[in-house]
Design a binder for these strands. Structure first.
Lengths: 218, 218
DNA sequence: CGATAAACAAAACGATCGTTTGACTGGTCC
DNA sequence: GGACCAGTCAAACGATCGTTTTGTTTATCG
């Protein structure tokens, strides 16, 4: 198989021994999926990392596929809720700027990369994006659709000169830039003398500045 | 395993029966890797699609890993050459605009998605991006580095007001938007009444307009 | 022609995969 | 106490994986 620099996990998983078996599986799954991908991550690696029996996955989740779906749902619901809450907050202000809405779109996504105990989920999502599965597309559309529609409506208000098609295109490109930044693949790497929080805020600022100008393009 | 809408390939591969075994394997591999991923695509599916014997892969390429690398190299070399040629052409003009350089960066990548017999490679690349493997990062850096440096130099000339760090960030975000657009995952889908060529040119125009504004952001 | 080597094909190899089975545990309720 | 049940565990199942082996065909060249 492909030689990877992490044929063994290499770092200890933060297994909370007091957590339930289900929780421990979910936590380990998120990390392992992010690191190895859905197909390459085996249930034997996963259950060993989680400190549970091999059969526990099929017992608690029915199948590996269901586990994948659960890992997704857990984080996507979080992201959706935070995005909508942030959007509600900025639109409640007397004057809402494009940067405000972009912040509500971008910051919860970047935040997700480091809290909730995981922080690797965005890589999972980036991988899933790339997998380009039709059933995944439908799943994301079902779970993301209403959020994207709300943001699109707000963007449209703030960019009245844009045609619908042009607007869809540009939001799509913003999503691409955001996904790329989140996946951490880009050339920009956090320097060791910058804290994770600071780096995330810098990323958000760069993204918002870039995206705002792109959206406002003539 | 994950239920996919294409558990069987579903469409006939354009296997040129006169092509050499090596070529047929490479062509089939590119399509299958794009569709299923590197890990999920089995040599049995691959060789069946290519119309060659199972052992042919290990005979001609040594291993599945080497095959993956060859698939990459073949397309990346093409992309690098076309980008550099396009860049050389626009910088030879009396006046080079930011849009020109962006076109030289973006158009060869978009073109790659539909010619050369494959057209699925960019999905492969997008997947690879998301896999976030360190060895892959090194591989891409080795094969991409000099091209990116040349483009960065040109961008720097055209955007004298930008700090180096800011410039790196913005080029990275442009790359993200480009990758996303190429992967075809976005909400924007080609309509059936638009030809592939037209759709590609529209994509290029949207991308260039968006990226130029983003790069020029105050 | 005979020799040499590259190319192809069929079959099997050991390993690993997701999943299932059946036994055993500890606790809960009648 | 005995019946019940969710949970855990070791062990095994059949399938599929990448790779190797072994033998045959095909082509090249002295």
């Amino acid at each position: 198989m492909l030689k990877r620099s992490f044929d063994s996990i290499g770092w200890a998983l933060p297994v909370n021994s007091s957590a339930s078996t289900k929780e421990r599986i979910l936590t380990a799954a998120e990390a392992l999926f992010a690191q190895r991908g859905f197909e390459a991550a085996s249930l034997r690696q996963l259950t060993a990392a989680a400190g549970v029996n091999l059969a526990a996955v099929n017992y608690h989740f029915g199948s590996k596929d269901n586990l994948v779906e659960e890992v997704f749902k857990r984080r996507l619901d979080q992201l959706n809720n935070r995005r909508l809450a942030a959007l509600k907050q900025v639109t409640a202000q007397s004057e809402t700027t494009l940067e405000d809405v972009l912040g509500a779109f971008i910051r919860p996504a970047l935040d997700l990369s480091h809290d909730g105990g995981g922080g690797l989920f965005m890589r999972v999502l980036a991988r899933a994006f790339a997998e380009h599965d039709d059933s995944l597309r439908k799943f994301l559309s079902d779970n993301y659709g209403h959020v994207m529609r709300q943001f699109t409506t707000e963007f449209a208000k703030l960019l009245p000169g844009l045609s619908k098609e042009e607007l869809y295109w540009r939001i799509d490109l913003v999503t691409g830039a955001l996904t790329h930044a989140m996946s951490g693949f880009g050339i920009i790497q956090r320097k060791s003398d910058v804290s994770e929080t600071t780096h995330r805020e810098q990323t958000a600022e760069h993204l918002i500045r870039f995206a705002a100008a792109g959206l406002r393009a003539p």
